[in-house]
C-alpha cells in the first residue's frame, strides 16, 4: 500500500458516505441528508437511541424505499465494475466489457421473451423478468464459451468474435419478438433496456446480494492469477498458473456478476468499461488493490448516477451513465497519450 493507494481508499470511502447521505435524502419528499442519515443509523440494532424524531412515513421512505434502491445501485455498480475489470484483464484488452461475452444481449433476450410472452407473473415473490434475464445472460455466455473451444483451448480472438456474433443473433431475436409485440409490452421492454434501479425493493437486493458478494470475493482470490494473466497465457503458464482452468473460472464469475446485475436493473452501460480504466489510471494494474478499488468505485459511481437520474425526474439510470460516461471516457482517452493499459 503506497500513499497514493491510501489516498484513493480514503477518497472512495468519503464519496461512499456522501453518496449514501445524499441518496437517502433525494426524492419527492423533502428530507435533509443529516436527518435521513440519522434515521439510517438509528435503525441499526443497538443504536436506536440515535434515531431522530421522525414520522413513520419518513422512516418508511428512508428504510423501505430509498435504502433498498441505494443498496441495489451500489451492488449493481460494484458487480459491473468487477466484471469489467476481469474481462479487460482476461482479454488483455482495454476495450473488453461484460457485454462482449453476449451477457447483455442474452439478458435482453431473456427479459424480452418473459415480458412479451406474458410471463411477467409472480415467481418466488419476484417478477419472472429478472430470472429470465439471468438465465438468458448465462445461456448466451455459456454458448459463446463452448463455441470458442478449439482442442482444449479458448483463443481470445475467437471468443471475442463469437461473442459479437452470438450477441448480434440474440439482439436480432429480441427485436423480432419486439416487433410482434403490443404497445404496452414495448414500453416495458424499452424501460428495461435503458436500465433502472427505480421501483426496486428488498426482494431484488436479496436476489443479487449472494451473487455479488460471493462472486466478487472469489474473483479476489484470483487477483494474483489475473496479474500474471496480463503477461499473456504463455508466461502465466510458466509462472505456474493452470491457465485454461483459471480462465474458465474467471469467465463464469464475470458472467455471473454481470448477469446478476443486468437481471435486476436492465442494461446499464459504461460502468464496466469506465470504472476499471479510471482506477487503473489512479492506482495501477495490480489486482490485489485494483479489484477492491473497482468494487467500491463502481458502487459509488452508480449510486451517484442514480441520484442524478432521480433529480432529473426519474429517468432511466442507463441514460445517465452513458450521457455522463461517454464524454468522460473520451476525455480520459484523449488526455492519456501513449495509452497504457
Amino acid at each position: 500500500m503506497s500513499r497514493r493507494h491510501i489516498a484513493v481508499a480514503v477518497g472512495l470511502l468519503v464519496l461512499l458516505i456522501a453518496t449514501v447521505a445524499i441518496s437517502l435524502a433525494t426524492g419527492p419528499s423533502a428530507l435533509s441528508p443529516a436527518k435521513a442519515g440519522r434515521i439510517l443509523v438509528g435503525a441499526v440494532p443497538g443504536l436506536g437511541s440515535l434515531a431522530p424524531p421522525a414520522s413513520a412515513t419518513e422512516r418508511a421512505i428512508v428504510l423501505d424505499i430509498r435504502l433498498p434502491r441505494l443498496i441495489l445501485a451500489l451492488l449493481v455498480g460494484a458487480s459491473l465494475a468487477v466484471a469489467g475489470t476481469v474481462m479487460q484483464s482476461f482479454f488483455q484488452n482495454p476495450m473488453a466489457a461484460p457485454s462482449i461475452l453476449g451477457v447483455s444481449a442474452g439478458a435482453m433476450l431473456g427479459a424480452t421473451a418473459a415480458i412479451m410472452l406474458g410471463f411477467d407473473i409472480g415467481f418466488w415473490g419476484l417478477s419472472a423478468v429478472p430470472a429470465a434475464a439471468f438465465v438468458g445472460a448465462l445461456a448466451v455466455s455459456a454458448a459463446v464459451y463452448l463455441l470458442s473451444r478449439r482442442g482444449g483451448r479458448t483463443p481470445v480472438t475467437l471468443l471475442l468474435l463469437t461473442g459479437i456474433a452470438l450477441g448480434a443473433l440474440a439482439s436480432a431475436i429480441s427485436s423480432f419478438i419486439l416487433i410482434r409485440g403490443q404497445q404496452g409490452d414495448l414500453d416495458m421492454v424499452i424501460i428495461w433496456m435503458m436500465g433502472s434501479v427505480a421501483n426496486r425493493g428488498w426482494p431484488e437486493v436479496q436476489m443479487i446480494l449472494p451473487y455479488v458478494l460471493a462472486g466478487s470475493a472469489i474473483v479476489y482470490l484470483y487477483s494474483r492469477d489475473l496479474n500474471v494473466l496480463l503477461m499473456g497465457d504463455e508466461q502465466a503458464y510458466y509462472l505456474g498458473v493452470p491457465v485454461e482452468r483459471v480462465k474458465l473460472i474467471l469467465l463464469i464469475l464475470a458472467s455471473l456478476l454481470a448477469a446478476a446485475a443486468v437481471a435486476v436493473t436492465g442494461a446499464i452501460g459504461f460502468i464496466g468499461l469506465i470504472v476499471p480504466h479510471l482506477m487503473r489510471l489512479l492506482i495501477g494494474p495490480n489486482h490485489r488493490i485494483l479489484l477492491p478499488a473497482c468494487f467500491l468505485a463502481g458502487g459509488v459511481v452508480l449510486g451517484l448516477s442514480d441520484i442524478v437520474a432521480n433529480l432529473a425526474g426519474e429517468i432511466p439510470i442507463g441514460i445517465v451513465t452513458s450521457l455522463l460516461g461517454a464524454p468522460f471516457f473520451l476525455y480520459l482517452l484523449h488526455r492519456t497519450r501513449d495509452y497504457e493499459f
Binding site: N227, G284, P285, N286, E340, F341
Partner: peptide
C-alpha cells in the same frame, strides 16, 4: 521466453 514488450504498467 522471448519478451518483446508490455502494455500494462507494472513496476
Amino acid at each position: 521466453p522471448q519478451v518483446t514488450g508490455h502494455i500494462f504498467s507494472f513496476s
